[in-house]
Computed example of a mutant assay.
Amino acid sequence: MSKIGIFFGSDTGNTRRVAKSIAKKLGEDADAPVDVKKASVDDLLKYNALILGTPTLGDGELPGLDAGASDESWAEFLPKLKGKDLSGKVIALFGLGDQEGYGHEFVDALIFLYDVAIEGGAKVVGFWPTDGYTFEKSNAIVDDQFVGLVIDHENQSDQTDERLDAWLEEVKAELLAVA
């Protein structure tokens, strides 16, 4: 059986820490998380089951040089993934954001990962309810739910483990079915 691939972009390291926590919780079912700045498109495409994570920077942007990140990240990687055939792949998404400081663009970057996955023909799983968050607007909402798990490390870090456990319970079987 193959494993679940976990790929993330990060700037401050919070998304990396969440990716590592996900990998630890999945145990032998997942490979070690990989920062997209160190990955190739082929590295990602070798997996049929993927978990992709991103923070939102700047004005609702993906992490990357244009958003003021210290290194390349999703902003540079995602264009390379556009147009690739992702059919047959199951992808779960997670995003980090600050609902109090950036409630007008809360986890907006998550929609960019979602759009590329859907355009490539992947099945996206793990939609997450908006209940329990206080924000003005988010582009990462489809059919009244976030397109993936949302973590607010700044204001609700005490809920991170509980949210991770509930979300992984929801997505694990679907991911492992294609891994």
Rank of each mutant, 00 (worst) to 15 (best):
G58D: 12
G95M: 11
D158P: 00
L164I: 10
D108T: 08
R16N: 13
P129Y: 11
L168Q: 09
G101R: 05
T56C: 10
I111K: 15
A177T: 03
G83C: 04
G27M: 02
E170G: 01
L62A: 12
E154Q: 12
G13F: 05
D66I: 04
T56N: 09
K137H: 15
D35G: 08
G9R: 03
D152Q: 11
D98V: 09
Q159N: 08
E174W: 05
Q156N: 13
E61V: 03
G148W: 04
S70E: 14
L113M: 03
L50D: 00
V36P: 02
F146Q: 10
T54W: 02
K3F: 06
G103P: 06
N139D: 14
A122R: 06
S10R: 03
A19F: 12
E136D: 15
G68L: 13
Q159M: 05
E105N: 01
A179C: 13
T134H: 14
E61W: 02
A30P: 07
A39P: 04
G88N: 04
T54A: 10
E72H: 12
V125C: 08
A69W: 12
T15A: 11
A117T: 10
L110G: 05
G60S: 05
L113R: 06
P33S: 10
L110M: 12
A49T: 09
G13S: 03
L96A: 04
D165L: 06
S10E: 03
K172C: 06
V36A: 04
A177G: 02
I4L: 02
E136W: 07
K25A: 15
K82D: 12
G13P: 03
G9H: 03
T134N: 15
I141M: 07
E162S: 13
K24G: 02
D98A: 07
L113N: 07
P79D: 03
D85A: 08
I51D: 01
D29L: 14
F127D: 10
Q145K: 15
I6T: 03
D115E: 14
G88R: 04
L176C: 05
L175P: 09
Q99P: 04
K82R: 15
Y47V: 14
D85G: 06
V34P: 03
A117H: 09
A122N: 04
G60H: 05
M1D: 02
L62N: 09
K82T: 14
V171I: 12
E119Y: 01
V125M: 12
V178K: 00
V90C: 00
A109K: 07
L78A: 02
W167P: 01
Y133C: 07
N155I: 02
G53R: 07
V125F: 11
E28Y: 03
E136V: 01
F7Y: 11
D131A: 15
A30M: 09
V90R: 01
E170S: 13
W167I: 11
K82M: 10
E162W: 03
G97H: 08
L57G: 00
